[in-house]
Amino acid sequence: MAGNTFKSKVNARPGIQQPGNRRNLFGFIERKLALTGLFGEGVPVGLVPPFLYAASLALIYIWSNHKAENTIRKIEILQQEVEDIRADVTTLEAAFMYAGKQSEVAKKIAPLGIEEIDRPPHKIVLKK
């Protein structure tokens, strides 16, 4: 019985493309990795799922950090707007309180010919 031997890569299977000759994404990746000599004969398929899992976790982590930073920026902008509006409300309340004083109302209605009463009101008493 003969021992096991390796087939030559040139005449391994006529009509079927060899991994290095593929014209797709994985063939391109295999050719580039073969040039670096990092994995030797080919890419270990067993490493693809853990790598994709780690890459997806990294993307989710980066996305959540960006989302959190954007939310913090929006919160700071809204807090500044609330402080500005609160200051405006305080100013307007003070102006309305001042405008509602009896002396200020009397000044505003003086051009209309309405005068403020000097004497207190008196009771009208009816005898039965």
Rank of each mutant, 00 (worst) to 15 (best):
R23L: 13
N21F: 04
E41L: 13
L59Q: 11
G15N: 01
H66L: 14
F26L: 10
P14R: 06
A58S: 14
V43L: 15
A34M: 12
L33T: 09
K127T: 03
K74D: 11
I109N: 04
P19C: 02
R86A: 15
A95P: 02
I109R: 13
R22K: 14
E115A: 10
K9M: 06
I85C: 06
I77F: 13
K32M: 15
F39Q: 05
G46Y: 02
A106Y: 05
F6N: 04
T36M: 09
R119A: 15
V48H: 02
A95Y: 00
N11P: 01
K32Y: 11
G27D: 07
Q17H: 02
N21L: 06
T91C: 04
Q80Y: 08
D88M: 06
A99W: 00
I109W: 09
S56D: 09
I109Y: 14
I60G: 08
L78P: 01
I72N: 09
G20R: 08
K9P: 00
A99Q: 02
L47P: 00
I117L: 14
L38K: 14
H122T: 15
A12M: 05
E30L: 09
Q17S: 12
Y61N: 06
L112R: 06
L78C: 07
V48T: 14
P120H: 07
I85Q: 08
K7W: 03
Y61W: 04
K127F: 03
K101Y: 07
P50W: 15
V89Q: 08
G37L: 13
W63C: 13
G37N: 09
H122W: 02
V105Y: 04
K74T: 10
S8A: 06
F26C: 05
V45G: 05
N11D: 09
I29Q: 13
T91N: 08
E115S: 08
D84M: 11
G20I: 08
T5G: 05
P44V: 01
N11A: 10
A58Q: 12
A68D: 10
F39C: 10
V48Y: 01
N4A: 00
I124D: 07
F39P: 06
H122R: 15
F26R: 07
A99F: 00
A55F: 08
P50I: 12
T91L: 12
I85W: 10
E76I: 10
E116I: 07
V89P: 01
S64F: 14
G3C: 04
L25N: 05
W63G: 12
